[in-house]
Amino acid sequence: MKADQREVGVRGPVAARGGTSQSARPRRVLDALDRAIVNRLQDGIAVEARPFATCAAELGIDEASLVRRIEGLLADGVLTRFGPMYDAERLGGAFSLCAMAVPAERFDDVAEVVNGFPEVAHNYERAHRLNMWFVVGAGSRADVDRVVAAIAAETGIEVVDLPKIEEFFVGLRLEV
């Protein structure tokens, strides 16, 4: 970890438009302790009575300071979340990543149809022949199949259904 301070920009989801040209709006300068905390907390805490006390001791600070820092990192948008990362599938749902090749002139209308399904959680435009990518989540695989079939029927466009076969890793674990 470098000792210098680095300006960070915090922006909303529109930043996902990609490319390198957007200018970041700096809201918080991460100091060395912030970076140590962000790096350490990405690895996870244990289930114990006072997990922050354990982490704080590792970082050489006291528990209350660590908790305040985490609050600040959340408030400034450096962290989006702190808590259990649930695998929704293992909690009893079914999900699939789906893709469609949507003609440019119909793109917005089709997006409206797809987004209108409450089972569609995320939907992204991507630069590819298959230009619309979305996640369908429902209570069971049969429910997912029904939603996929309904989207294909309502749009008249083939839905390429790509359910997860195996998960090798999930988690953001980016060194700062």
């Binding site: 920009g9 990405q42 400034d76 948008g77 259990p84 980016l174 700062v176």
Partner: peptide, 14 residues
């Protein structure tokens, strides 16, 4: 069912 109890950084922010 829980992968980790951890911080999720805003990758744009970092």
């Amino acid at each position: 069912a829980i992968r980790r109890i951890a911080a999720v950084p805003n990758h744009y922010a970092i």
